[in-house]
Write a protein that binds this DNA or RNA. Structure first.
Lengths: 341, 341
DNA sequence: TTTTTGCATGTAAGCGCTTACATTTTTCAT
DNA sequence: ATGAAAAATGTAAGCGCTTACATGCAAAAA
């Protein structure tokens, strides 16, 4: 009754006539084993089709080579490129990715984080800085390495691989001001639980204030990221008696929705209205006109995040703060405002 | 030296003055435990911040509540919606998702599958039917449940939740023929390792043949799915002396690239050239003109796949084949061919 | 009251692996 | 050839949990 099961380390040991310890060593640190026995063991491993039992390995070795990531959404491509790069870098190091998405809810995110940790994640990739103190305490107590991505924060206690959302947004706004725009409006993700969105809006406000604009009544709609919402928000903003000449969007997805709606309303971009995005995902390049947006080095971010995380696993006290540069990508959706319409 | 560690089942048991078995039962099948002790235990669990050790649990219970998925890519949104739905449905059942991507390589996919299984995945979501026999044998030997998505296949041995790529493509082609198109060209993903792409192309060919077209020299470019490749292929096809009047693309991403390139070449869609897509991802709706494409019920597919998979875990002999309907979404990118240019 | 039944709990044997430590074998300087 | 150091291998104790089985105890049946 023992034959048709999945082979275990014991089976291999017996078949190869060595102890289980030797088999284990042969698999985990081959150079501690003589070439002769190694070959013998590897042959048996192959013959039997042995592959280690994950649970047992995790239990005994106290690590899983599995990393978790909680992203706000998988529904649009914002995180896709970064995640893919993250995953590939993990793969290069024989680790795999456990993925969860939180639908932009801090509460759900917290659950997901706990669940990933409970599943033995050796480390976590988290998006943005904003979450309850409890979460950080939880992770610190268990000494779970994590790295924060998509946001930059100078900190000795936490690693991050991000970029300056505030600054990038600030610069884009300055550019718009220099082109002569006077009436601004903003479509943003909800800022209450999203530090990136918050900083992007802050960047816009600061730039305006620095150039003497009054920002108290800056029209600003907050919604979930989706093309649909971009369209709706655009419609609403353009329905105002005092139409803006430029609408700055929290990301490319919203901007794409805005552009779409502009077409439907028969508005010419950028003659009738300028629109800007953020992220420079592929979407930004295929819509007409191409978006003026902020390029974010998603792939690099994902890859570096994985590297930092892996270092932290080896050295629990290792920390690194990496700030990636961003730059404005000139599309055709931002130009100086046309004559008053 | 025992205090500052992570609490274990033993700690809980000791603190609550019951046996470990009772604690375990309390957590896994609460109704086997009296209300009184249950409350007592749960309080201790909370106080101690106990959370079960994954490896130990997996080892003892022989299941992980973790499911794996290997998608060809995360770089574009083709699989995003389906995966998100899959993940959400798993979440509703206290399971999580292990994700890997294969970059459309069968070899990489096989590795990923083995790796996911080694990591204790209770079941797998696989995209499409095309993979080596060994993989299926491997999975069957270990009795790992899996469900095939994105493709439909009538089979008593395998579960699938998919749609008829061939038929959908066939119908779209018929529609184009009826509009009067005579010169077809195709941009497809590589068909050698991708049954969906293969069937979509087959659908086109069959429709053409059924209507008396010669398909031996149907221009057909195969490339990886990307906007860039869509553009390049489009350029190549339109560089031919005998320009097609319609280019049918294997999916929306390629079509978006084609559309982009058409704009750059100053070609009007659909007057100068018709373009069709496949998948009806959001991208299809924001480009100008909106794509005529095939709607695929991605979300539903993801959700159903999760449900089937969960059923298979409970009952290893359960199998189900679900074919979802698809339909043509009328955009503005397909119309009758203009006068000979 | 005594016996039966069934629920609540405890006991303890693993699950398959890693690794500290012990033991044996090989290598090599003397 | 000899002994010490180094290398290879073996022994066995867990890792933290689940669960079959045994036990205890109160309610139901006789």
């Amino acid at each position: 009754m023992n034959k048709p099961g999945i082979p275990t380390l014991d089976d291999v040991a017996r078949e190869a006539k060595v102890s289980t310890a030797t088999v284990s060593r042969c698999l985990n640190s081959p150079d501690q084993v003589s070439t002769k026995t190694r070959d013998k063991i590897l042959k048996v491993v192959k013959d039997l089709g042995y592959s280690p039992n994950f649970g047992a390995q995790a239990l005994a070795a106290k690590r899983t080579n599995t990393f978790g990531a909680v992203v706000p959404t998988m529904n649009n491509a914002i995180f896709a490129a970064g995640l893919q790069a993250f995953q590939e870098e993990l793969g290069r190091n024989d680790a795999t990715l456990l993925l969860a998405s939180s639908s932009y809810s801090l509460k759900v995110e917290e659950e997901q984080i706990r669940s990933l940790v409970a599943r033995g994640a050796d480390g976590l990739l988290l998006i943005g800085t904003q979450r309850s103190k409890d979460v950080y305490t939880f992770l610190d107590d268990r000494q779970i390495p994590y790295v924060i991505a998509w946001s930059y924060k100078d900190s000795k206690k936490q690693s991050c691989v991000g970029f300056d959302n505030f600054q990038a947004s600030y610069e884009l706004t300055l550019k718009a001001i220099e082109l002569g725009h006077k009436k601004f409006a903003v479509i943003s993700a909800h800022t209450s639980s999203n530090d990136r969105a918050k900083n992007r809006v802050r960047g816009i406000r600061k730039a305006l204030e620095d150039r003497g604009f009054e920002t108290n009544n800056l029209p600003c709609i907050e919604c979930d990221y989706s093309i649909e919402n971009g369209s709706l928000s655009f419609k609403e903003l353009m329905g105002s008696p005092d139409r803006p000449t430029i609408i700055m969007c929290g990301n490319d997805v919203l901007a794409a929705g805005a552009v779409k709606q502009a077409h439907e309303m028969g508005l010419k971009i950028p003659d009738d209205i300028s629109i800007t995005g953020f992220d420079n995902i592929e979407l930004a390049t295929v819509i007409e006109p191409a978006l003026t947006t902020v390029h974010v080095r998603h792939k690099r971010m994902g890859m570096l995040a994985a590297q930092v995380l892996l270092k932290q696993v080896d050295d629990k006290s290792y920390r690194e703060n990496i700030k990636l540069d961003t730059w404005i990508v000139e599309g055709k959706s931002l130009a100086k405002p046309g004559p008053v319409s």
